[in-house]
């Protein structure tokens, strides 16, 4: 068997989704968008997107309606704090485990 080259494994990583692992598992509370209150959803116009602007992990889409990628959302609550329509509530993850 040919010997492995020296230092062939690096801990280098390329920028892209999921490189730090599925960080959604870190979440204790899940942000849930109430589409009745969400401004772009309610008006069907590309407006507001404050949650998309503030999300530090870039897991909220700039779409109508905005969609949260729960594989990577760490549950930091910034979106819920910043939403001007109070459309986002933080729901305890244990509720979803029971489901």
């Amino acid at each position: 068997m040919k010997e492995k080259p020296f230092g062939y494994r690096k801990s280098h990583s390329e920028p892209g989704p999921g490189d730090g692992g599925r960080t959604g598992s870190w979440r204790v509370k899940r942000p849930v968008i109430d589409l009745e209150k969400c401004i772009p959803a309610k008006r069907n116009k590309p407006a507001c997107f404050t949650c998309w602007v503030f999300c530090p992990d870039n897991v909220i889409s700039r779409t109508i309606p905005p969609v949260i990628d729960y594989q990577y959302c760490k549950g930091c609550e910034i979106c819920a704090e910043e939403c001007p329509a109070d459309a986002i509530t933080m729901v305890d993850e244990t509720i979803f485990i029971k489901e």
């Binding site: 280098h12 990583s13 390329e14 920028p15 490189d19």
Partner: peptide, 29 residues
Amino acid sequence: ANPANLNTVTLPDIRPDIRGQMAPGYMEI
């Protein structure tokens, strides 16, 4: 031309990289 993170936070466990291939954890390195 091919940006990369060099030796960033490497989790205790191995993990899939952006291509889905398993990348070494701290202990393997």
